[in-house]
Computed example of a mutant assay.
Amino acid sequence: MCGRFSLTASPEEVADFFDLEAVDDFPPRYNIAPTQPILIIAGDISRAPGDNRSNRRPLLVRWGLIPSWVKDLEKFPLLINARSETAAEKASFRAAMRHRRVLIAASGFYEWHRPPKELKEKPVPYWIRPAQGGIVAFAGLMETYMTPDGAEIDTGAILTTGANAAIAPIHDRMPVVIGPQDFERWLDCKTGEPRDVADLLKPADQGFFEAIEVSDRVNKVVNAGPDLQERVAESRKPVDSRAEPRAVKPASPPDQLKLF
């Protein structure tokens, strides 16, 4: 599961990494939570023949995918993640896997290790970032939902996979990472079907991420400063890979419609 992440790179760095014409200005975001806007990169098949400009476009979408067929939002769960192993068959994600695959810009993500219940200890948060720094692209899905009053809401979810050996002691799931060499193939929903990109839905290489134990201040959405990513003294007890780790469920932000 991925329940919180961060994007602290500059708009210029994001544009360069994803080969975009430009990205609207935005501040560093250290604690992105469900229902808040997230920056995605989508492919654009409307480019005219002979147009050599980038065919990728940045968009802001609500984190929490809503399939087009949903009738009652009050009864529908918040889909912030999609299991990559089953997304192509699940009703909630099937159409998006075929027609609306996107990239999600991030600097890293947070995950919580939950110690065994008998220890009666609090979950331990970790900031998990690329070991070499920089931006990372999560595999994502997008849907545009139309409300009963006719308003359109662009929504998205992060695809997850089984954790690699480095992350598994913290949590058993992690976001799918798409490398720059595979951006075009992942975004090509015109000719590429889900089976054509199935090989990309795998854990990141063993040394790609590093995990840093951080303060539990990240648990609260209102805390959104760079101090959230500062290393704290590691817990006395080592992470137990035999435990059943679960992520802390994030609280909804106080203002779901505010972009930044």
Results as ranks from 00 to 15, higher is better:
P123E: 13
E89I: 07
G133I: 10
A151P: 02
K71A: 04
L159T: 04
P130S: 07
Y145M: 02
D72I: 04
L119A: 15
V70S: 03
M142H: 00
T86H: 09
Y145E: 12
I128A: 08
E111R: 09
M97D: 04
K122Q: 14
R100W: 01
I128L: 02
L141T: 03
P116K: 10
P123F: 10
W127G: 07
K120Y: 00
S84D: 09
E74H: 07
Y126W: 05
R83A: 11
G156M: 06
G140V: 07
W127M: 07
D149M: 02
G156P: 07
N81A: 11
T144I: 14
R129M: 12
I80D: 01
S92E: 02
L78A: 00
E85D: 14
G162W: 03
K117M: 08
D72E: 01
A165D: 14
T147V: 11
P125R: 06
M97I: 09
K117Y: 00
D149G: 01
A137L: 05
E74T: 10
P125Q: 10
I80W: 01
A151Y: 03
A168H: 11
N164K: 08
E121P: 04
G133Q: 06
V124S: 08
E89Y: 00
A95M: 00
A157W: 08
P169D: 01
I104M: 13
Y126P: 03
L103P: 10
E118C: 01
L73I: 05
S107W: 13
P77F: 04
A168M: 08
M97Y: 05
G140T: 11
Y110W: 08
I158L: 10
F138C: 15
E121L: 14
R83M: 11
L119H: 06
H113T: 01
F76Q: 00
P148G: 12
E143S: 15
A168R: 09
G156F: 04
E143K: 01
L159C: 14
I153G: 06
I153T: 09
I135A: 05
D72A: 06
A168N: 01
R98G: 04
G134C: 09
S92W: 02
Q132T: 15
H113G: 02
H113M: 10
Y145D: 01
G156E: 10
E118N: 10
R114L: 15
L119I: 09
P115S: 00
N81Y: 05
V124G: 06
